[in-house]
């Protein structure tokens, strides 16, 4: 299958204190980024239930990013510790079910890291373009006669 022209649909969960501010900085700094990303702001990356990610991927999203504060910088002390653990097992579960875990991306972006934000977004979009459209998409919506 050729992925020429494939524009992935991606979702990013950004924590209020670090990565959302980092995204903001990237915007204010007019850093160029692909437009494939829809951003949802949450108070802490620890608030991102893996069910949300499962729902997004099951609904046909091609990839999901979760960005939080660096370990040690969490506004809620160890919220992102839980994020890290949950997403470690979630990635394994996705792989077990046959969804490439590379469709999930977890990283830490601080409020001052506008450039890093730009960088991880570009890299993630490229990675998903490489992987191609989610195979789940074929299983969604109105079933067609085989």
């Amino acid at each position: 299958m050729s992925n020429n022209g494939f524009q992935p649909k991606l979702l990013a969960f950004c924590c209020n204190w670090c990565s959302y501010a980092g995204a903001d900085l990237a915007g204010v700094s007019r850093l160029q980024m692909p437009h494939n990303l829809r951003v949802i702001r949450v108070m802490c990356s620890g608030r991102v239930s893996p069910e949300w990610v499962i729902k997004a991927l099951s609904s046909g999203m091609d990839g999901v990013m979760v960005l939080g504060c660096h370990i040690g910088d969490c506004h809620y002390i160890d919220g992102n510790h839980r994020t890290k653990k949950r997403f470690a097992i979630l990635a394994k579960l996705l792989g077990t079910m046959g969804i490439n875990p590379n469709r999930l991306y977890l990283d830490w972006v601080s409020a001052s890291e506008g450039v890093k934000f730009q960088d991880v977004v570009i890299k993630f979009v490229d990675r998903i373009k490489e992987l191609g459209p989610t195979p789940i998409g074929a299983y969604q919506g109105v079933k067609v006669d085989r």
Binding site: I54, I89, M97, I136
Partner: peptide, 25 residues
């Protein structure tokens, strides 16, 4: 709002992935 009710088979893979996550520990 998570798993569309009243459908058989239930939507794949959300039903089974959510259960798998809940049981992982």
């Amino acid at each position: 709002s998570w798993v569309k009710a009243g459908e058989i088979p239930p939507p794949f893979p959300i039903f089974h992935l959510i259960r798998a996550y809940h049981l992982s520990d």
